[in-house]
């Protein structure tokens, strides 16, 4: 069966909304995809979410189960703030799925490193890994503070190993998930079956890659740069290209393998703004 991709907006009413935290800084919106459409969404792929006459922003899929498609949004800019005020039944336009996502294999031991909002595409990844009965799933989730450990209540009850970290020590261990990654790799004999996944601040992603490189497993790492500026989604407008090898975040990514990322000089160093100019990360 052919799968659909929406290039023109599919406009649907929001079917479900839920604040993920008491501070109401993060919300999950769900829409129900009509039965006539067959969607196949790789974890790590994203949709363009359209608020007519306001803007359209790229948001990673945070779950897709039984035709219910979920996106988790934090109030980062004007458009996301508007989305936080949506009510059930309000209309939302969707285009996608766009980009390349995470590749998964059942025989792997998956180590997932999440930082802050980076957990959202990784949440959908975890459900996919569970579905294909991946050998083992280990989640190392970090955030600034306890209230930003999104989905922690949900994920800790899944059949996966979880370790939580906060910068201020308000939940789990005080510190960063990358410390645990380092320890795990040092204590693992067989590195061949490992698959490392990550999403979050690029500084953290860069650390993951460095740790992987020391263990010579950079080709087993997949990291999402979903936090970067994206305009067109088709790889043609040129706004999101990574120097020096010239790959687009929107179409060649947002998920890249570690052995590709180690060739990208911008990775962990420079971002690009909407006008195309560079800034230091």
């Amino acid at each position: 069966m052919n799968t659909h991709k929406f290039d023109l907006p599919l406009v649907l009413p929001v079917a479900f909304l839920k604040f993920e935290t008491k501070t109401q800084a993060t919300i999950t919106l769900e829409v129900v995809i009509p039965k006539q459409y067959s969607l196949s969404i790789q974890p790590g792929q994203y949709f363009m979410l359209w608020l007519p006459q306001i803007d359209e922003i790229p948001i990673s899929v945070s779950n897709f189960e039984k035709n219910r498609l979920a996106f988790t949004i934090c109030s980062k800019g004007y458009t996301s703030k508007q989305m936080m005020t949506m009510q059930k039944g309000d209309l939302l336009g969707l285009r996608g799925p766009f980009g390349k996502g995470f590749e998964i294999h059942p025989e792997n031991v998956a180590i997932i490193v999440a930082g802050g909002m980076g957990i959202t595409p990784l949440r959908y990844l975890i459900y996919n890994l569970l579905k294909i009965k991946t050998k083992q799933i280990i989640l190392l989730q970090g955030a600034k503070t306890a209230s930003e450990l999104y989905f922690q209540e949900e994920l800790k009850y899944l059949d996966i190993k979880t370790f939580f970290y906060t910068d201020d020590g308000s939940y789990g261990q005080k510190g960063f998930p990358t410390q645990k990654l380092l320890a795990l790799l040092n204590n693992t004999q067989n590195h061949n079956e490992l698959a490392l996944y990550g999403c979050g601040p690029e500084i953290m992603l860069k650390q993951i890659l460095e740790i992987a490189k020391t263990n010579h497993i950079q080709h087993q790492v997949q990291l999402s740069l979903a936090d970067r500026y994206i305009r067109c989604g088709y790889g043609i407008c040129g706004s999101c290209y990574l120097d020096d090898i010239g790959l687009s975040v929107c179409h060649d990514g947002p998920v890249f393998r570690g052995d590709i990322l180690e060739q990208i000089k911008d990775f962990g160093n420079f971002g690009r703004k909407a006008d195309g100019s560079k800034y230091k990360l």
């Binding site: 290039d7 023109l8 363009m48 359209e56 305009r231 043609i236 407008c237 706004s239």
Partner: peptide, 22 residues
């Protein structure tokens, strides 16, 4: 956005990027 949209029926792209440049 939306500033670049592919229209499948006519294999064409409509855009209004607005001369974004540094």
């Amino acid at each position: 956005n939306p500033s670049v949209i592919y229209i499948p029926e006519i294999d064409s792209i409509i855009n209004a990027v607005g001369l974004a440049n540094p």
